[in-house]
Design a protein around this nucleic acid. Sequence first.
DNA 1: CGATGACTTAACCATATGGTTGAATGATGC
DNA 2: GCATCATTCAACCATATGGTTAAGTCATCG
Lengths: 110, 110
Amino acid sequence: MVKSSAARLDSVFHALADPTRRQILRELATGERTVGEIATPHKMSLAAVSKHIKVLESAELIARERRGSFRIVRLQAQSLKPAEEWIAFYSRFWNQQLDNLEKYLEGEKS
Amino acid sequence: MVKSSAARLDSVFHALADPTRRQILRELATGERTVGEIATPHKMSLAAVSKHIKVLESAELIARERRGSFRIVRLQAQSLKPAEEWIAFYSRFWNQQLDNLEKYLEGEKS
DNA sequence: CGATGACTTAACCATATGGTTGAATGATGC
DNA sequence: GCATCATTCAACCATATGGTTAAGTCATCG
């Protein structure tokens, strides 16, 4: 399924809005893992972790590949790029924070 | 309510995972707006937009202030910073994409 | 080929989300 | 003080989410 740019941001931000999923991405940053390896540290069923992996996959943040009887999962970090760019648009606002405050205070005086 | 760093990422990423809310932030990037002004371009009730604004507020991405009989809403972009930093951790992966591909192909040869 | 291991899928449940309409709140204007 | 405007809150609804357990799939091992 090909997603529009907005839909891709929807699914990426949604995927990131869960601590379990963010933790999975952190783990994958150190290398490939099987589903079982990913699941072990989490206090929930394998099926639940499998669902989280599915959410990450549908956001294209990871890729799953069969290797023998295992599914190996690896990070696809480049799918984060549009999200980072979307946010980066606003970085000028937090950088200019002090400037804005100054202007505001300037306004108050008059 | 003070949120943990993880909970703040949860609420910020969740707030961003909706196109209406992202659009509202874009509008606010050009300046303060009343709730009514924000609602007008959207094809949904004022109450629905009010709910979206509430979600953005609980993520601290905006601030609401009473001004006469209006509530004026303004961007609080600095709350995006932790989200951007979280993502930025992964930028090395998409920057090293070609390197990784090279290494992978190198491995295949042997 | 039958059992085992590694997942995934299905069915189910409780809670959350995103929308609606209609009543409530809280200034402001006569 | 009463009406009106701007907005929020409450109640409701349909669908989505995040978890569970149990059954299904698929590759490997004996």
